[in-house]
């Protein structure tokens, strides 16, 4: 069974998954770790980005146009969700954003003219850029990592800029930030939009990697749990935490495949695995592996 590790396609697939999960984790961490809100709507942004990207790409538009359009669509969704909810407390945002994920999921299943509903959209192409085809797995691996690394650098720069520092100040002491004359709501909504934007970018590379999106079980609770575990396991408020979290979560996910269990039970075992990890990490080490002791996790 270990010959699979020398199988190049398996390894490329593994790291392709890790690439978009890192980006999804990093983008969710902007909200959860730096603003300090429980955002359960990230899967909704992911779905909106994926459908926008896919539908435009299938119409023959340029890869970068589609990637950007998906990200913009997700960012607009972030604005729409953020405007009414960002003045609420964290657990209210949690429930409102869970409702958002549910609405997006419900629309993706019911708007069959656009999304093909439960059938999903198969045959999503991989792009050709400047005459170079990114169809083969190793070429797509380069593309998805290039996108992830560039986005990661932008997120890193943002979080370590004065803007990111102000976000952290708001999280730790809202009154102090207000006293300094900062428009708290503006910073929060910007963070929400940026977070959703990069979820949309990740959604693009996700869609062309699997070359299929949709179905009754996609963009819903299993994915939500996956992202939540990545951020909380790695550590909310830590940039590298989300990277480490994504790698560990995907190792666990793939590891379950090697257990001697029926094929039909792989999905539930995976879900049980990261649900248990999430519960245990929250009980014993809520700051995660690399996280700082941020305010949302303190008394």
């Amino acid at each position: 069974m270990f010959e699979i590790f020398t199988n190049t396609n398996y390894l490329l697939g593994f790291f392709n998954n890790v690439a978009f999960l890192i980006l999804l984790g990093l983008s969710l961490n902007i909200i959860m770790g730096y603003v300090g809100y429980l955002n359960l709507g990230h899967v909704g942004f992911w779905a909106i980005g994926s459908y926008t990207y896919t539908i435009l790409l299938m119409q023959g538009h340029d890869f970068f146009v589609c990637l950007f359009a998906g990200a913009i669509a997700a960012a607009i969704a972030g604005l729409i969700l953020g405007l009414p909810t960002l003045k609420l407390r964290s657990h209210y945002i949690g429930i409102a954003s869970l409702g958002f994920t549910y609405i997006v999921h419900s629309l993706s299943l019911n708007l069959t003219d656009i999304t093909r509903g439960p059938l999903g959209i198969p045959g999503i192409p991989r792009p050709t850029i400047f005459g170079i085809s990114f169809q083969p797995n190793h070429m797509y691996f380069l593309l998805s990592w290039a996108v992830t690394i560039v986005s990661g650098i932008i997120i890193y720069r943002l979080l370590h800029s004065p803007w990111g520092k102000i976000l952290e100040t708001i999280r730790e002491d809202q009154v102090a930030a207000k006293t300094l004359g900062k428009n708290i709501f503006l910073y929060k909504i910007q963070a929400f939009i940026i977070s959703a934007f990069f979820a949309g970018i990740a959604a693009g590379i996700y869609s062309s990697f699997y070359q299929y999106i949709g179905g009754t079980n996609s963009f819903f609770i299993p994915q939500l749990l996956l992202l939540l575990t990545i951020v909380m396991l790695g550590g909310a408020g830590s940039f590298w935490g989300s990277v480490v979290g994504a790698v560990i979560v995907w190792i666990m996910y793939e590891g379950v495949r090697f257990l001697p269990i029926e094929a039909g039970l792989v999905g539930p075992v995976q879900q049980a695995t990261y649900a248990s990890v999430l519960v245990l990490i929250m009980i014993f080490r809520p700051r995660g592996i690399m996280g700082k002791n941020v305010k949302i996790l303190q008394k």
Binding site: L38, S90, H91, L278, V279
Partner: peptide
């Protein structure tokens, strides 16, 4: 703990 933690646990 702050409510954030039992809330995430309840999702798990």
């Amino acid at each position: 703990s702050p409510p954030f933690i039992p809330l995430v646990i309840s999702i798990g």
